[in-house]
Design a protein around this nucleic acid. Structure first.
Lengths: 340, 340
DNA sequence: CTGTTAGCGCGTTCAT
DNA sequence: ATGAACGCGCTAACAG
């Protein structure tokens, strides 16, 4: 490995001079600067980030932790975070927890060991608390994305899940559905809790029946085994004509399960859900969704993080950004007649 | 920051003993080991990766560089790479180049500075050559994914793009299409070249007309401005009844452009393309595609990389894995009668 | 404008 | 079984 000492020797200067050339600090004569630079090129020198970080006590590295890298909601969010980071001259690396606490812990571990300057976290759930406390304890600034974690104060960017669920129920009711089921992620995720809450409140408001067997709590991430969903569909009250899915993944899995049994959407069952399927949905508009501004989650979250890194305490009290969502009506919900 | 010296002092041992406890090296009495561990917990010690890497000359960190984090092909690939890395006890971080050489260069830079142990690269194109040469020069093992780069010898995992294009043309011809256009990524990507080649060969084979204005070379990544595609569609020979898109993104953009002008797929134009839109395509099977085993690209690539890291030269000559693809027929291609 | 010294946190080598 | 000295590559502080 080429070090500043190799450069120094070949350029007949001290290592310190080389360091100054690299970092553009101090005053250096144009002549020596040129000489040093030439030698650096010749030798193909690359600064050792480890060594720099060790002495500077900062890495200039930011992390984004998402829970499902195959979900377009999170990848769009990632693009937003990336753009904002680049705009401010920060490097960003991604990690994928797969909604698994163990994987999340491993990434937090890596982040801690790597001494990242800051982290954007979409937490797996409430049990992410110790992970976030670890970040806090070690002085790593972080911003929460998409989900709250009880017991954690921080900057955060959220969607209005309760309001979204409300709008979904209203739309279904408007379309003539009176018996609406809900398949949800784990209630250890705040979004799932708010969506359940909004669902129940709206049912009450529109005078629709609530039945325990019409609600399934499972998980947001993709699964290979659809039997749980299958069994739930079997136990559903027969009057149910519409299902709300807690996210885009669940919606797809419900539809797959239904269609494996020859039941069509929306003919035999209506479906609506949270979150888009990005580009594809546009060309073949099928799923009725509550669309969230995924890109903004990442972009604004990154801005908050960078503010926090730059200004520390001076960035003021914790900021909470709640992003509005939008109902997009498509083909997956059928209009029911009076008989429905 | 808590260091091994803080632990050492509080546990009444030397820093060296602490280090040994951390790394499970040397012989330590159970008593001191327990004491040291307890103090470590009390103080919430986290090893400083920078310092470790500096002395060990290795980071145990792997990178995956993809060109479009919003494209399900690459995110599925990423999941495969992640699983394989985890299986072998390596940490993996992601970077997204957005098909941009400048962003790719920045990531290569980060990787070099970070002294990663190895890299999985889906290169932006032929001009990625210097980036890969830099990796080589600095002794960072890498494996290429999805695209070849002329002038670079390395392990690589590829799809058979030529064969895929061939199958696409054959299918369209079988469906009665005699005038088939191609919208492609930049020819600086080997996949685009092979797809063009397969397209031209197949046209010849099935005695179909080739026309220059029926082929557009643009780029694989999503764009905001669809005018280029729009203009191309306007200039297409009027006899054209089907379009092959070089990837999933282009297919969606063509369809969007067409539908903005009131032209329907497949009624007014048939479309087929490379690569799936992951889960969503299953529930609403619209696009006829050549489906590639994205997950395997990542999984097998990671295996190659880890072999190379572990065995170095002893891993033998460069390995090239070519993954077969599969034609999946759906609704986006219309069957033409004799008049077509 | 340039060089010397010291130390960031840790692990290897050699003592004890 | 444990400790002291040294160095990994780099930069801040001070000297000249």
């Amino acid at each position: 490995m080429v070090t500043i000492y190799d450069i120094a020797k070949k350029a007949n200067v001290s290592a310190m001079t080389v360091s100054r050339v690299i970092n553009n600090t101090g005053r250096i004569s144009e002549k020596t600067r040129a000489k040093v630079k030439r030698v650096m090129d010749e030798l193909g020198y690359v600064p050792n980030q480890m060594a720099r970080s060790l002495v500077l006590q900062q890495t200039h590295l930011l992390f984004l932790l998402i829970t499902d890298i195959t979900n377009p909601f999170y990848t769009t969010l990632a693009r937003g975070a990336e753009d904002a980071a680049q705009k401010h001259g920060f490097r960003l690396l991604f990690g994928n927890s797969d909604e698994k606490l163990a994987k999340e812990r491993d990434y937090i571990d890596t982040i801690l060991k790597t001494r990242a300057d800051g982290v954007l976290v979409a937490p797996a759930g409430d049990a992410s608390l110790p992970h976030l406390e670890a970040l806090r304890k070690h002085g790593v600034p972080f911003v929460l994305l998409d989900r709250e974690v009880p017991g954690v104060d921080s900057d955060i960017v959220l969607g209005d899940s309760k309001e979204g669920a409300h709008r979904l129920v209203k739309h279904l009711a408007d379309m003539g559905h009176r018996h609406i089921a809900l398949i949800n992620g784990s209630l250890t995720a705040s979004t799932a809790r708010y969506r359940l809450e909004g669902y129940r409140e709206a049912l009450k408001l529109y005078d629709l029946e609530y039945a325990e067997e019409n609600v399934l709590e499972t998980s947001f991430e993709p699964r290979n085994d659809l039997t749980e969903i299958e069994h739930w569909l079997d136990r559903l009250r027969p009057e149910v004509t519409a299902i709300i899915a807690g996210n885009n993944v669940l919606a797809v899995e419900v539809i797959r399960t239904l269609s494996a049994r020859g039941r069509r959407v929306p003919d035999d069952m209506s479906i609506a859900c949270f979150d888009e399927w990005a580009a594809y949905a546009e060309i073949d508009p099928f799923l009725t969704v509550i669309s969230q501004q995924a890109y903004q989650f990442g972009y604004l979250g990154m801005q908050l993080l960078i503010d926090r890194i730059r200004d520390g305490e001076a960035a003021g009290p914790w900021k909470k950004i709640v992003l509005p969502s939008q109902l997009i009506v498509r083909r997956s919900v059928r209009r029911l007649g009076a008989e429905g």
